[in-house]
Nucleic acid binder design. Sequence first.
DNA 1: TGTCCCGGCGCG
DNA 2: AAAGCGCGCCGGGACA
Length: 668
Amino acid sequence: MTGWNIDLPGTMYLSGDSPENEKQWMVNALAGAQHIAIDTETTGLIKWKDIPLYWSVAWDNYRATLRADTLYYFTNVFADPEKDWILANAKYDMHILANVGISLLGRWNCVQVMHSLLYEDKPHKLKYICQEILGWTWADFQDTFGKIGKKQSAEDVIRKAEYSDMQLLIEYAANDAWGTKGSFWELKKQLESAYTYSLFQNIPPYIDTLWDFFSKVERPYTKVLWKMERRGILIDVPHLERSEPTARKEIIAVEKEITKLAGYNINPRSTPQLQKYFFDEQEMTPLKMTKGGKSGVRKPSVDEKFLEYHKNDSPMAGLLMTHRELSKLHGTYIIGLRDLCDPSGRVHTSFNQDVARTGRLSSSEPNLQNIPRPENDKWNLRGAFITMPGWGMVACDYSQLEMRLLAVAAAEQDMADVFNRGWDIHCGNASLMYNVPYEDVTTGKKLAKDADSMDGVELIGVAEEKSPGISQRAQASGSSLAAYLRLCSSHRSDAKNIGFGLNYGMGPKKLANDLGCTKQEAIQKIDTYKATYPAVTNFFKEAVEEARETGYSFTILGRRRNLPQILSNNRSDRAAGERLAVNTQIQGSAADVTRMAQLNIDALGLDRMYNCHMLLQIHDELVFECPQECVEDVKLEVEEMMQHPFCKDLLVPLDAEAGSGVSWGEAK
DNA sequence: TGTCCCGGCGCG
DNA sequence: AAAGCGCGCCGGGACA
């Protein structure tokens, strides 16, 4: 009757109506168990609202389904700080339990997170995990009792099941807990035997195996993320409500112009219709083709590059650019954000720990890691992330984290020195690459734009003040000061594009495209960069070799990513693997750094010290709220913690700078 | 009505 | 033939 492909023990059942001795037996049994898998059947999927109807547990060779009204008998069990709780999608169940006042101390072992450390490219849903690593399958709850959706809520389905076949409900409710328990032990075994490379093998946190990485980093991190999700961030909903009609009207106005220009009703959101307009009717030349997807039919692209390219010769292109900008902000951010707020105006994102292959977080429902930057946003959406009266927002972000970690990974002393001097990295790179004084590059960056419109004498005065001797050097190079400044400025932009690009494995063709030069010139520039930083060049080579030999790319803390394609016979697959080998190490190590900072900040107890709460992580930025009078203290604490995430310093200092204000927009 | 894929685009 | 990493969400359109 269990719907399983394996034998398993019968399911005990407990409700508030059960006899006293049965309740007592269960309380004693759970109190005596070290590891307990736990799962909830809930009224729905909204983590700040929905509540448990049933909960199920599995431990040793037992399994049980319990009605939600029994939760309070187990207060002492939940309060045991030494318990190991085992869950699938741990944060969700913990939210649901918190909604009825239940909090579980002890360790939160999420099997999805465990699975993601070993099988980055596979799905991490419980059913898949069980099938894949244990060969266990069982009948699906929803297939048996009805689909949860718009027509019927999770609660409806469970109520129906209670009525139609209570015994089956009891069995099925405990299936997930049983599968969770089984996969935990198998995954633990696999993690313990998975040795890894870490910079912290012989110093804290002592990471030798993936189990070390899980138990010392990922497991405590789950709880930190849960606290952030639980707190949520306050949204200025009235601000959004005020912007919404205006935004909508602006979009409609642009749509009218588009219709007028086309001469017929065209939907500016429809790529097929736009392709027809531009390439069939206007007979314009495509810049590039789309990927073609499953069918493989490649069509001319109507992306931003195309519109930008034609904005002067085709009025339609300009209108569409405006339309896309407005409708993106309206649909995704104004409407999207408003609809996900709780009644108190706070929004509770999910910080997903088991998604990104590099070890980064992802954020969803809503994604708070892609809120527009102020310069691209006429509605100032970051200004809509606010604090309560008397409170302040603190935002602290790393400066050039990935670049610094590249210098660390490569042990590139010249680049490290650029950071040690506190220089702008791209100006420093340009200075070393093109053998030009650092001050000339910074001056060029500042003045190149206005050089032509400035009075010659004035220009010399300003430039000489910033970089003494610059006019002489310009003369020596045989060009005017203005031209020399533009040259220095273009050196910086070269260095910036190459610096970022090489981390991603960018080729000369794309670089040439971005810099507006020939492929030959691009190759030349890359060579100059590689010659300037031989250790970086060597690092790129060794990262690829290591991945070829071990099959993996490793981050600073020892997270690994399997890269089988690096041995592929297919050229492009192999090249992709080589790009990943480099990038995963850098991006993943940056993720490690932010993670450690978050763990340390949590352990320090800023919440108790200052009533300070971590709200957001945007890869290299952390956002907090605290009472106004604590803002300055919090800024200092956070900067210090972010700058020193490890128990030993790296070759390159990490720089993090905090700002504050009453909103996220102000705090940057 | 629901589900999937796609092109496009927001962020780091 | 084409070749930049990592995400999530929107609306359109195809299909069941």
